[in-house]
Every structure is written in structure tokens, then in C-alpha cells.
Amino acid sequence: MNKNKKIYVAGHRGMVGSAICRVLETKGYTNIVKKTSKELDLRDATAVKNFFELENPDVVIDAAARVGGILANNNYPYQFLMENMQIQNNLIDSALAIDVEKFIFLGSSCIYPKFAPQPLKEEYLLTDSLEPTNEWYALAKISGVKACEAIRKQFGKDYVSLMPTNLYGTHDNFDLKTSHVLPAMIRKFHEAKLNNAPVELWGSGTPMREFLFVDDMAKSVVFALENVLPDYLYNVGTGTDVTIKELAETIQRIVGHTGEIVWDSSKPDGTPRKLMDISKMHDLGWKHQIALEEGIQKTYNWFIENQEVFKEVKL
């Protein structure tokens, strides 16, 4: 890939998008286009179309989405379905209209059926029902995957979808109302340590989850950028998982909280297990580099150093 190619990173201020930009810049890419949501509302089809015609990017990386954990998905199903479809449809359709040569669409492991065999293979897509607590987001992302597949099939263009496992890292969302499990735990344990209090966590602690540090995800995107991937859909992860209880105990140890952990089993667990089969990416030459404990330490360090970002945190 020519380092001067114009690359538009949608969602560049988010955890994933900012990591992608950092990796691109580290590798010498000099023509990265970035627009904030105030500068460009990706839900506005006309605005997106006009932006693409003006900027004429060579490559589009779609890291823009409305995201959140179980609570947010349950409380705002319409927004999670509609806004994500609007964002991705506008980006994909506008890219096709101006003949963008490469499009990388980012989704989530939640696109796979709730009770699919483990580990999750790409071919399990649409073989059974989804996890109800995040089906709205999943349905939106599935439609994006299929749109990119349709473009490959009909127009022969290099549009590829990468489905990461649970992501975490620097620039994560630590808002307890909308965050995912790992950053929410970091904040809970940190505040409990300061207040010498127990930590209450949702569910039983028995579900198993796989976690990928966001810089590794960003490197997989650049890998897809610099190579022509032969298929339309690829899982991105570590290939290993831990129970939520093990995750909590690891975070507790790193944060330095010594109090009690209380599990509220009246709250939902979500999908029992979501381990990704990442053999397709491994076979092409990509592999993650940052282990879970190292990644949690990096994330906690960033959280501590950026307290001004979290105005709602009462220290």
C-alpha cells in the first residue's frame, strides 16, 4: 500500500479508530482523513455523500459505531439498530458510488449465534438465533458484513469485514451506564479501592470471554489494508478466553483492591461463551502480541493518567 494513499478513518476519536490512526502514523502513512461527529454526522446520507465526493478517499476504514454493554443495548434497542445501520450504510454506499478501492468494515463477535459451537467460525454466521441482550447491534453489523460481501460478489471490489472479539485498551469508555465489562470493572475496582468498599458485579461470573487489546486490533486492520485478503469475513482475536470471575480477580489484583467481590446472580450473564476461531487470520500471517494481564495493566495506567477525561468519576 502506497503510504501517500488517502485513508479515511471513520470514528477516529473512538478507542478503535484512534488506535488505528496511531498504528497508521507509526507505519508512515501521511494522508489520513479524520472528521469528528460534529464536522460530519455519519447518520446523514447527504452529508456523507457530499463528503466522499469532496475528499475522494482511496481507502475507507469503518471504525464508527454506536456501542455499549448489555445495559445500553437493552435500554436503547432502536438506536443500536437504526443508528448503526445508518452509519455503515452511508459509508459503504458512498464509498461504492465514488469507486473507493478498499473498504475495511469492523464489526463484533456478537454477530454469531448465541449457542453456536465453540470456537466461533466465520461460517457459523446466520445459522441460528442471536443473543437477545445485544441482537439489535448484532443485526446492524450483520447487515454491514453482508453489504460488503454483496459488493465483492457483484462488483469484485476489495471490501472486507473484520470481526474482533471483545476489545479493550487505552481511550476506552469507562462510563458505568454504557461501558463494556472490562473497563467497567477497572473503574469499579478503582473506586472501591479508594472507598475501601466491596465490588458488586453482574451475573454469576461463569461465562467465558476472550479479550483483545485494541492496539492488536489496529494492527490487524493495517494488515488487512496492506494485503488482499481472499475472503469477505475474518475473525480477529487471541484464541484464548477466561471466565468473568477470572477476569475480575485479575483486574482486582492489578488495581490493588483487597475487598470483597459480590456477584448479583439476578442480573443477566449474556452469552455463555464467545471464543473466536482465528485460524483464518493466523494462516494469512497475523497474530496478536499483547497478553491479557499486560493489556489490563496498560489500560489501568491510562485510566489513572487521564482522570480529567472522566468528569463523572468522584475521587
Rank of each mutant, 00 (worst) to 15 (best):
F213E: 04
I98Y: 14
E53Y: 02
P164C: 01
E294R: 14
I186L: 08
L54S: 14
T46Q: 15
L212W: 01
K27S: 09
A150I: 03
G239T: 02
A147P: 05
G205L: 09
I142P: 12
G11M: 12
L182K: 09
L162K: 05
Q79Y: 06
N74C: 07
L233G: 06
R253C: 14
H180I: 01
K274V: 00
Y76T: 05
E135Q: 10
N50T: 07
Y300S: 10
V100L: 10
Q289F: 08
V60N: 11
V9Y: 13
W263L: 01
Y234Q: 01
Y137L: 10
A64H: 05
P119A: 00
I7H: 09
V60A: 06
T36N: 10
D99K: 14
A192C: 06
G69E: 07
E135N: 11
E210A: 02
T170Y: 07
I296D: 04
F310D: 05
I244E: 01
T240A: 02
A45H: 15
S143L: 10
G259E: 11
V145F: 08
N2F: 06
H282E: 08
K141V: 08
V214Q: 01
K34F: 15
V255M: 13
E260H: 05
E131G: 08
G237N: 01
I7T: 06
I244A: 04
R22A: 15
E123M: 12
P183C: 08
Y8K: 13
A248I: 11
W202F: 10
R22N: 15
K177A: 11
M185W: 03
C148E: 02
D175I: 03
S179R: 03
W302I: 06
P207F: 01
L125T: 01
E293M: 03
Q79R: 11
G69T: 00
K287W: 00
D41G: 04
N56M: 13
M276D: 07
P272Y: 08
Q252V: 03
I70V: 04
K193I: 03
Q88G: 06
V145Q: 10
I32H: 05
C110K: 14
W136L: 06
Q307R: 09
P272I: 00
T127Y: 02
E249D: 06
L225I: 14
N173P: 15
L139W: 12
L229H: 10
L247H: 09
K177T: 10
K5V: 05
N235H: 07
A63S: 14
A63G: 14
V313G: 06
E101Y: 11
F310H: 15
D241C: 06
Y234G: 05
P57Y: 08
E305F: 01
Q252D: 04
V67F: 08
A10G: 13
K157Y: 03
K274R: 14
A63M: 12
G285H: 13
L126S: 11
E83N: 10
T178W: 01
S279M: 12
A116W: 07
V222I: 14
N90G: 14
D283G: 05
V9E: 09
A197K: 15
K314V: 11
T271E: 07
I104R: 12
G270E: 01
K146T: 05
V48Q: 06
V16C: 02
K3G: 12
W136G: 08
M85C: 14
D128W: 07
E305G: 07
E246A: 13
